[in-house]
Simulated assay, not measured.
Amino acid sequence: MKVTTALFFGFITTPILAYPGMGSAMAEIQTRHDFALGRRSTELLGDLINADQGSLTPSGTTIKSILEGGSAIADSSTYTPPGELASDTCKKSVLCVWYYIIQDLSGSFTESDGCTDLARGAIRQGFHDAATWDKNSAYGGADGSLLLNDDELARSENKGLETISAQTKTWYNKYKGYGITMADLIQTAAMTATVCCPGGPRIKSFIGRKDDSRAGPTDKLPLPQQDAQYLIDLFAAKTFTSNDLVALIGAHTVSTQKFVDTSRSGASQDTTPSVWDTKFYSETIAGDNKTILIFHSDKSISTYSSTKDQFNTFAGSNGKSLWSPAYAQAYFRMSFLGVNNLNNLTEITQVLPLPK
């Protein structure tokens, strides 16, 4: 690796190779190179921080590997339930129960031209439950508190989640007799919604999180009026790098807003809000704030010194192939913030829908 890196930088500084546009091309190559070398977070979380290798379960081993830089994109394995949901055989199988739950969710997240408003809401809801945690928090994170505590849900930063929160509570009441937690339902809904959007990645998924009805800590969520450096610092405290941040905000590709600019309620953040693509990046850079509504935070990140190259890379011709695995790994990490029993979780990836 050291030899390759030295040759790479030698190549960049060779004057003979200069040509018009070389600067931007080299910036994109450099960004891809740095991203491949691990400018994503590799910090461990929860009980995996101090776990001995010999004590790791298969789930703990998989989660640890992904947190340390492995791929979070799932293969195409599928699952056939052994019986109907109400059958004794199904009730005894975690996979079977979640298969039927996810079938229910995915039916609400998909329509003929892509993913639905409920899908968009479920993705945002997953972020808002998990991101109340950082390394200074004694509690909070992906613990279901967003929907278990009315005071947290009523916070101004959670405006717009009313419809998906009500639907998620309905699903929870329908399935809680099967031993599920709200924390797992929120994150599984976010993962399901992502893959239900055409082009969305199928992210490896686990259940077994514990619920906490205490309202999550305040001032931990990003806001659309914040500047890039503030957001970089906010996410660093949650164990994310600036490259992770750039990957995560790409979820705005399926975002529509109601309250950032109330005069343009329903405006989307790219021109294809039912499809999981990288137009968010290219159209934010283009800056046509009449066709779409560009958040100040997104524009700031797109132009900031330490994030603009990665932003431009995702906006490039091969951006989708780079963004999908980057987003998958970053959101995989997001879904475990504040979770302290990672070694005891159960993988349910194979019951997720296949990518569209």
Rank of each mutant, 00 (worst) to 15 (best):
D75K: 00
S77W: 00
E347V: 09
K258Q: 08
S59Q: 04
Q103T: 06
A36T: 10
T278P: 02
Y304I: 01
G114W: 01
N149I: 00
E157H: 02
V339Y: 04
Q53L: 01
T80S: 09
Y139G: 06
S255K: 12
N136C: 05
L45E: 00
S165I: 03
D288G: 03
T239P: 02
F311A: 05
K92Y: 02
M334D: 06
I232Y: 03
I123W: 04
Y172L: 03
F336K: 12
Y230F: 15
S274R: 15
V275A: 02
D143P: 00
N158R: 06
G114Q: 07
T110G: 11
G179W: 13
A251P: 02
L354F: 06
G60I: 09
A190I: 07
W98Q: 08
T291I: 08
S274F: 08
D219M: 11
G266F: 03
F8P: 03
Q125S: 04
G69C: 15
T253A: 09
I164E: 13
T218S: 11
P198T: 06
A51Q: 10
S106Q: 12
T170F: 14
E28Y: 00
V254F: 03
K220E: 05
Q229K: 15
G38K: 05
S321E: 15
G38D: 09
K135E: 15
A228L: 06
Y99N: 14
S165G: 15
G179Q: 10
L95S: 14
S41C: 13
I102W: 05
G83V: 06
T181F: 11
Y327F: 15
S300I: 04
D134N: 12
